[in-house]
Design a protein around this nucleic acid. Structure first.
Length: 386
DNA sequence: CAAACCGGGATCTGCCATTTAA
DNA sequence: TTAAATGGCAGATCCCGGTTTG
C-alpha cells in the first residue's frame, strides 16, 4: 500500500485523477488509462475525465475568455470552479476595477486563483475593509493581490480575518509592524487564528523553557525580525531551533539571546537547507584552519551566514581569502559576507590597485554601502598614503 | 570626522496534500 | 463525491543609510 501510494506520488500531480480512479487494486489499471488518455490528448478539456453529469459551464468559460482570463491555467489550478453554475466573475471584476486594478490585473488574478470568482461583492467589500485596517490605500492592497491573489482569496472567513487582526494587535504589534508583516507575508492574514496562535504559543513555550521573563517583547522581537515565521509550521521552526542549539551547543541564555537577536532571521529556512549549510560551513571552516569555537562565534554573531547556499558561501569565502583577507578578519567582520561575491571581488580589485593594506586598516571598507565605498575610494586615491 | 552599530527594504509565491463542508 | 478550506512545503541574498560611538 505504501509502495502504491509512492508510485502515485511519483507519477505525480494528478490528485483528482487518483481520487476519481479509486483506491483499490483494480484502480491501478484505471489510473494508468486515465493518465494515458490525459497525456495523449492535445485538448485537456475534452479528454479530462470529466464525469458525464458534470461538465464545465460553457457560458462561464466564454465570460472568462472575454475577460482575458487564461482559462487553461485556471482549469489546471482549480478545475472545479469552471464547473460551477453560479459564479460572480462580473461582480468580482467590477469590484476589483473599482479599487484600481486594471483589466489585465483582474484577469491575471482570476487566472491564478479562479476561486476568487465565487465570492460575492458584499463579502469582498467586508474583506477589503478589514484589509484597510492595516493598509492605508486601496492601491497597496491591489498590488499585493496582484502579487499573491491566493493570500487574499484563499479563505472566505472574514470573521477569522478580523480575529487575526485583533490577535496580532494584542501581541503588542503596532500599526507599522502589522503593515510590514502583512505586506511581506500576506498569507498570515488567511491563516486560521488557531494556526497563528499555535505558533505564538509555541514560541512562548520555548521562551519560558529557556528561562525568559518577558514573553511579550520576545514575541514582538521574533516576529518583527522574521516576518515569515507565522507562515511557517511550528515543526519547521522547532527543528531549526534544535539544529542551532545542538550544532552550537548553546546554553539556554545563549540560545535565548540568539533567538531574539539576529538568529530569528534564519528560523524560517527549510530544515534540510539549514542542515546542509551548517555542514558545509563546518567543513569549510575546518578546511580554512579555524577552530570549532570560531564556528560558534560566527554563527552567533552573524547567523545570516547560514542563509547563503553552499556554492554562494564557498565562493564568497574563497574570493576573500584569495584577496588576502584572513579567516580571522572575516570572523571579526562577518558582515562582509552580506555582499555578493561580485561586489566583494570588485572592491578587492579596486583596493588592490591603490595598495590598500588590510592588515593595517582592517576590512570594514568591504561592507560599506556603494555610495560610501565610492566616497572612500575617492579619498584614498587623492591621498594615497592613508 | 570615520567607524561601528543596527534595522530595514526589496520581495516571498505557487503548488500539493489533507481535512472539512456541502 | 466534489469543491472548498486549510496547512505545509521548497525556493535560497544583497544592499542601503540613519544613528550612535569613539
Amino acid at each position: 500500500m505504501a509502495a502504491l501510494h509512492g508510485v502515485w506520488t511519483l507519477l505525480g500531480n494528478h490528485p483528482a485523477v487518483t481520487l476519481r480512479c479509486g483506491m483499490g487494486i483494480i484502480s491501478v489499471q484505471l489510473t494508468h488509462s486515465c493518465l494515458f488518455r490525459k497525456l495523449c490528448s492535445s485538448d485537456a478539456r475534452h479528454s479530462e475525465l470529466k464525469q458525464a453529469g458534470n461538465p464545465e459551464n460553457e457560458s462561464l468559460l466564454e465570460n472568462l475568455n472575454l475577460m482575458g482570463v487564461d482559462v487553461k491555467m485556471a482549469r489546471q489550478r482549480q478545475p472545479g470552479v469552471l464547473r460551477k453554475s453560479l459564479t460572480n466573475e462580473q461582480g468580482v471584476a467590477q469590484f476589483l476595477q473599482g479599487k484600481g486594478a486594471s483589466r489585465k490585473v483582474v484577469a491575471s488574478i482570476i487566472s491564478r486563483y479562479p476561486r476568487a470568482i465565487t465570492r460575492s461583492v458584499d463579502h469582498l467589500d467586508q474583506r477589503w475593509q478589514l484589509w484597510r485596517n492595516v493598509f492605508q490605500t486601496d492601491s497597496e492592497i491591489v498590488s499585493i493581490l496582484e502579487r499573491s491573489p491566493e493570500s487574499f482569496f484563499r479563505s472566505s472567513d472574514n470573521e477569522n480575518l478580523h480575529k487575526n487582526i485583533t490577535f496580532l494587535t494584542s501581541l503588542g504589534l503596532n500599526t507599522k509592524d502589522l503593515h510590514r508583516l502583512l505586506t511581506t507575508a500576506p498569507r498570515t492574514f488567511s491563516n486560521s487564528l488557531e494556526l497563528n496562535r499555535q505558533m505564538v504559543e509555541f514560541l512562548e513555550d520555548i521562551y519560558a523553557e529557556l528561562g525568559g521573563k518577558n514573553p511579550e517583547q520576545f514575541i514582538k522581537a521574533v516576529l518583527s525580525r522574521n516576518l515569515y515565521i507565522l507562515i511557517r509550521s511550528t515543526k519547521r521552526v522547532k527543528t531549526n531551533i534544535n539544529i542551532l542549539q545542538k550544532s552550537l551547543k548553546l546554553s539556554n541564555s545563549e540560545l535565548l539571546a540568539l533567538l531574539q537577536g539576529p538568529g530569528a532571521e534564519i528560523l524560517d529556512l527549510s530544515n534540510e537547507y539549514l542542515k546542509k549549510n551548517f555542514n558545509n560551513l563546518k567543513q569549510k571552516m575546518a578546511a580554512l584552519g579555524s577552530q570549532k569555537a570560531d564556528m560558534k562565534k560566527l554563527v552567533t554573531n552573524y547567523p545570516m551566514v547560514l542563509y547563503n547556499g553552499l556554492d554562494t558561501l564557498n565562493s564568497k569565502l574563497d574570493c576573500l581569502i584569495k584577496g588576502g583577507i584572513t579567516i580571522k578578519q572575516i570572523l571579526e567582520k562577518p558582515k562582509v559576507l552580506d555582499y555578493s561575491t561580485q561586489n566583494i571581488s570588485g572592491r578587492l580589485d579596486e583596493l588592490k590597485a591603490v595598495g590598500y593594506d588590510f592588515q593595517k586598516n582592517g576590512i570594514s571598507v568591504l561592507d560599506l554601502s556603494r555610495k560610501r565605498f565610492v566616497a572612500k575610494m575617492e579619498k584614498l586615491s587623492s591621498s594615497p598614503d592613508e
